[in-house]
Design a protein around this nucleic acid. Structure first.
Lengths: 126, 126
DNA sequence: CTATTATTTAACATATTCATTAATTAACAT
DNA sequence: ATGTTAATTAATGAATATGTTAAATAATAG
C-alpha cells in the first residue's frame, strides 16, 4: 500500500496480512471485542489494535463503542468490490490459460526432443 | 507483503498495487512484452520489471522468453483461490451486515430524534 | 566484432508496514 | 478518589516495498 491509495488497493492490502484475514475469519462467526480477537494470537494488544485500524480504514469492519469495549463487526461492501474485480478478469484469464496450456504443451514437445529438426520460430515475433 | 508469506497473502499483496492491477488488466486483453506493458505508464522500465517479478512470484503471470523479448501471460489459479477465500466469508458477512443495518437504523433513529424516549439497547449487547 | 534493442540486476533513497514496550485515555467498580 | 479493565497512542526499530539511475546481460542486426 502506498500513499494516496484507491479503495481496491486498500482492500487488497488489508487482505494481504494473514493475521488480518484470521481476524476477519473470526469475525465471520460473529462480532467480537478487541480482547476477544487478540486472544488467539501471540502478538500484543497494540498490534491487534493496529490491524483493526487497518481493517476499519479499509472499511472491511466497523467498530462500535459499547461501554468500555469496542465491538467489531464486518462490513461486506468492499469485499464485494474486490471479488468483482477478480471475477471481471478471471474468465478472460481462464480463456487465455487454455491457450497457454496448448502453448506450453507445444513448447515442451519442441524441447524434449532436441534431435528433431528445430523449427524456426523467429519470424513469429515481429 | 512480509517475510515468509503464504500464497493467499502473496496474491493479495500483488493485487494491492494499482500499477500491477493495470498490468493484469492489460494482460487480460492478451499477452504482451515488458516494453508493451511499460508503455502506458510513466514509471521506468526497471520499475515495471520489478512489478512483473512480483506478479510472477505470486504466480499470477508466467514469463516466457521469446527471442530478446519476454512475453507475459496470465495464470488464473491463484486468482481463483483468492476469489474463493473472499466468497467463502462474504455470505457470512452479508448475513451479519443485514443485522448490522438494522442496528444502525435503530441507532440513527435513537440519536436523530433526541426528544423521543430513547429505547434502551444495552441488553442486546451481552 | 560492434551497435542496437529488450530486459534485468545493482546500488541507492525513501516510505510504509508491522512488531514491541511504555504511557495515556476511557469506562466501570468499590 | 482509586484501582482495574479495555483499548489506543507514542516512541522506536527492523524489514519490506517501490521508485530512481547506471551498469550488466542477452539476442538480433549489420
Amino acid at each position: 500500500m502506498q500513499h494516496a491509495t484507491d479503495p481496491l488497493s486498500t482492500t487488497f492490502a488489508a487482505l494481504s496480512d494473514p493475521t488480518r484475514r484470521a481476524i476477519l475469519a473470526r469475525l465471520a462467526e460473529g462480532p467480537a471485542t478487541v480482547g476477544e480477537l487478540a486472544e488467539p494470537f501471540t502478538i500484543s494488544a497494540p498490534a491487534v489494535s493496529r490491524h483493526l485500524k487497518v481493517l476499519e480504514h479499509a472499511k472491511l469492519i466497523q467498530r462500535i463503542k459499547e461501554a468500555q469495549w469496542r465491538r467489531c463487526r464486518l462490513e461486506p461492501e468492499r469485499l464485494q468490490q474486490a471479488a468483482q474485480w477478480i471475477e471481471r478478469y478471471r474468465h478472460f484469464w481462464e480463456a487465455q490459460f487454455d491457450s497457454l496450456a496448448e502453448f506450453i504443451e507445444a513448447f515442451k514437445k519442441q524441447n524434449d526432443s532436441g534431435e528433431e529438426e528445430p523449427h524456426d520460430d523467429s519470424n513469429r515475433t515481429s
